[in-house]
């Protein structure tokens, strides 16, 4: 047996025994690459995800809502930060990952390429988008890679708070005037299908799934998670008194789960490939912030170096 196979076998045995892989442990190059791709995509999603909601901060309709929204968007920035740090434990720099985002090489969740048009979108995003994120992320708290799993524990706590906050916005709108309720219904109409798309392609089409399952980076398939999301969300929509825009959605007594309609996969791929309603704007906003911040980052580095030089000069004198 070659040394590599025995290393790989030991690695897999560790994973099979539900032990965590830590940064200093040996790992197959493909495992490392897969994680970097997934964690950085996840980090980028948190950061790009700040934009659609962030643009409602100035317009939030009450002080309480404004503070809630600012805190929420700020949490997402914090998630980005933990995740970039988790990725860095795999030997890649944050700057490099951010560059990959900016040149269009790295992906982020397509959901953030849809526009937020009304205040109800802020409710719908919290309820559905953070809701779907939780569905995807709770299993990641048991991911085989330690730093990622630990980051997810913190992230999930905050995501569930976001989801409750979003649902509460929806509830207030649905209990409000007819115009407010219509606003809530319209937001559900526009966000429902993109939210279902957040779980990715159907299992048959999913390219990375099998290996990720074996490595315990992924615990459930895309379709399983999507099904759970539908089953969880349908009664919540009923409670709000608004209708999920899917005529095929109905309870299957025999299977004890909901049947639902087919996702428009053309739209899915169109947005993934960069042609959604806001892909260009989202990326442009990130690139602009980064470029306009260059002089600030340069100055911070220059100043820190000056400080270090001063200290070492002083200690030479002493």
């Amino acid at each position: 047996m070659t040394e590599i196979t025995s290393l790989e076998e030991r690695f897999q045995a560790k994973i099979d025994a539900d032990q965590r892989i830590e940064p200093r442990d040996w790992m197959p190059e493909k495992y490392r690459k897969t994680l970097i791709r997934q964690i950085s995509q996840h980090a980028h999603s948190e950061i790009v995800g700040m934009l659609p909601e962030g643009n409602w901060i100035t317009r939030a309709p009450s002080l309480r809502r404004k503070l809630g929204l600012i805190a929420k968007v700020q949490d997402e920035a914090g998630h980005g930060l933990y995740l970039y740090s988790a990725a860095e434990t795999l030997g890649v720099e944050r700057d490099e990952l951010i560059d990959q985002l900016h040149i269009g090489k790295a992906k982020y969740s397509s959901i953030f390429n849809y526009p937020t048009l009304t205040w109800a979108d802020i409710g719908a995003i919290g309820w559905l988008v953070d809701g779907a994120a939780i569905m995807n992320q709770v299993p990641l708290c048991r991911c085989s890679y330690g730093p990622y799993a630990r980051a997810m524990v913190r992230v999930c706590k905050e995501e569930s708070f976001h989801q409750r906050q979003g649902y509460e916005i929806m509830l207030t709108l649905c209990e409000g005037s007819p115009a407010q309720k219509a606003m809530a219904q319209d937001a559900l109409n526009r966000w429902w299908w993109p939210a279902l798309m957040m779980f990715g392609p159907n299992d048959a089409e999913s390219t990375h799934s099998a290996q990720s399952m074996a490595w315990k980076i992924k615990r459930f398939s895309n379709d399983e998670l999507r099904q759970r999301f539908v089953d969880m969300t349908k009664p919540q929509a009923d409670y709000l008194g608004i209708t999920i825009p899917d005529p095929d959605l109905k309870w299957d007594e025999e299977k004890q789960k909901h049947d639902f309609g087919e996702i428009d996969w053309d739209e899915f791929w169109k947005v993934v490939k960069g042609h959604g309603p806001c892909n260009k704007e989202r990326l442009a906003a990130r690139v602009k912030a980064h470029e306009e911040g260059q002089w600030v980052r340069d100055a911070a580095v220059a100043y820190a170096n000056k400080k270090v030089n001063k200290i070492s000069n002083n200690s030479q004198v002493a």
Binding site: M50, K66, Q74, G80, R297
Partner: peptide, 15 residues
């Protein structure tokens, strides 16, 4: 300052 959320020069300073 709320206008800047998501547009800061560095993630830490955005926060």
């Amino acid at each position: 300052l709320g206008e800047l959320c998501g547009h800061g020069p560095i993630l830490e300073q955005d926060i």
